[in-house]
Nucleic acid binder design. Structure first.
Lengths: 72, 72
DNA sequence: ACACCATGTCAAAAATATTATACATTAATA
DNA sequence: TATTAATGTATAATATTTTTGACATGGTGT
């Protein structure tokens, strides 16, 4: 659904809370490419639910702590 | 990410808990088609995070109560 | 200065999600 | 019987996400 201004995320800050985990390292944990992590981090589009869940697992956080939704 | 055996959901039972809300009615609330709801309900693929959030909002539940992830 | 690493970004291709149309089945109902 | 509503499918077309490959930048270290 294209650009998603109504979804935000804490990926960047979570990465730095995790011993400065790099975009590449997170991508490897999740099983996607570095560009995908970068795009999601910058809200270029809303990821699939599966990728979102995998990111949450990588940080050992519930999904809703990584991604927030604000209806408009 | 194609078929998603590691994501399950409670959409069907939530629909019936909501005055027997129909697939079409949920689709209208969410802004997708009936076929999309049907496919998601049957785990044919994992929806976008945005659609997942909208479904959760339609049921007035946190996303993680509607969708569950089980890493394998 | 040079190399290295993390990041931002871009464009084209591949993969996946979603729509649109259509048709079959079942249950309810007039 | 006939009709209507809800659902399960199916296929092709469109939209979106993800990959791949590439290049540029700023920072850090040698």
């Amino acid at each position: 659904m294209g650009k998603s201004p109504n979804i935000s995320n804490q990926i960047r800050s979570l990465r730095f809370h995790h011993e400065e985990m790099t975009q590449q390292q997170l991508a490897d944990l999740v099983g996607v490419t570095r560009q995908t992590i970068n795009a999601i981090e910058h809200n270029k589009y809303s990821p699939s639910l599966e990728v979102a869940f995998k990111i949450a697992v990588a940080f050992n956080k519930p999904l809703t702590e990584v991604f927030q939704y604000e209806a408009h």
